[in-house]
Amino acid sequence: MPRWEPDARTRLEKAALELFAERGYDGTTVADIAERAGLMKRSFFRYFPDKREALFGGTPLLVGHLEQYVTEAPPGIRPWPLLVDALTGTARFFPEDRETARTRHRVVTANPELREREVLKTATLDDLLRDLLTARGTPPRQAAYLVRLALTMYEQAFTHWLTPADPEPDFTECVATAVGDLERVLGEWGDGG
C-alpha cells in the first residue's frame, strides 16, 4: 500500500460515518475505520486525534467561513442580518447528498459522547460570533442575545433542511422559514401574547 493515498481524509470520514451507522459508535474502532477506508490505522491519526473527530472535521471550515464573512462585511450592516447571512452561507459545507447529513445527524443524536461534542461545536460558534460582533461595535450583552437567537434559528433551519420533503427545500428557504417563525414568535410573545 502506498504511503500517501489520495483523498484519505474524505475516505476516513466516509468510512467512520458508515461504520457508526452500521455498528454504532461504541462498536467501531479506529482500526475498523482505517480498514474500511483502505488505510493503515496510523494513517487515521494523521487526520484526526480520535474517532469522534471524524464526524466533526468540518468545524474548522465553518469557523473560517464565519470569521471571514463577519470580519469582511461592510461596517454598516446591522448585526442580525449579518448573522443570518453568515450562517446561511455555511450551506456550502453541507454534503451534496442530503442522506449523508441525515445519517450523520442520526449517529450523533444516538450517542451521548457525540452529542456532547456537537454541543461543544455550537459553543465554539457562539463564542466566535459574539467576539466578532463585539469587535464590530455591538455591545456584549446584545451580541450574546443575537448570537444565541441566530444559532437557535440556524438549528431549526438545519432540522427543517434534514426533514424529508417533496420537493426538498434548499437551505436558504429553510433559513427564511426559521427567521419568519422566530419573528412571529417574538412578535406574539413580545406583545404580552
Rank of each mutant, 00 (worst) to 15 (best):
G190A: 11
T124C: 13
P60I: 03
R92H: 05
P95V: 03
E168P: 00
A157T: 05
R184G: 01
F94W: 12
E35I: 10
R52V: 01
L149E: 10
A143M: 11
P74S: 07
G137C: 12
A178E: 08
F48N: 02
T134S: 10
Q68E: 09
I77K: 04
G187V: 01
G76S: 12
V119I: 12
W161Q: 06
S43H: 03
M1R: 13
T88K: 15
L149H: 02
G38S: 08
A178P: 12
L151W: 01
A135M: 09
G57Q: 00
A91S: 14
T90H: 08
D97I: 14
A123E: 13
A123D: 09
L149N: 07
G180K: 13
A37Q: 01
Y154R: 06
F171V: 04
G137A: 13
M40L: 11
D166G: 14
M153H: 04
E35W: 14
A101G: 12
F93E: 04
P49F: 14
L17E: 14
K14F: 06
E116K: 15
E96H: 14
P75G: 09
D126F: 09
A135F: 13
R3D: 07
F171C: 00
R184W: 10
R46T: 03
F48E: 07
L129E: 03
W80A: 13
H160E: 08
R106P: 05
V63Y: 06
F93C: 03
G58S: 03
G193Y: 04
P60W: 03
S43C: 11
M40D: 05
E113L: 15
T159F: 15
L17M: 12
K14V: 12
P140Y: 02
T122A: 10
Y154S: 04
P81Y: 09
Y154W: 09
A157W: 04
V84I: 14
G193C: 14
M1Y: 09
I77W: 02
L114C: 09
P95T: 05
T28H: 11
T138V: 15
P112I: 03
K51T: 04
L87K: 10
L133Y: 06
E113V: 10
T122V: 08
R184S: 10
D32L: 10
G187Y: 07
L12N: 09
R184L: 15
R148F: 02
G180N: 14
F171R: 08
R46H: 15
L55H: 05
L120D: 10
H160P: 08
L151M: 08
V185Y: 15
D7E: 12
G27V: 11
P74D: 09
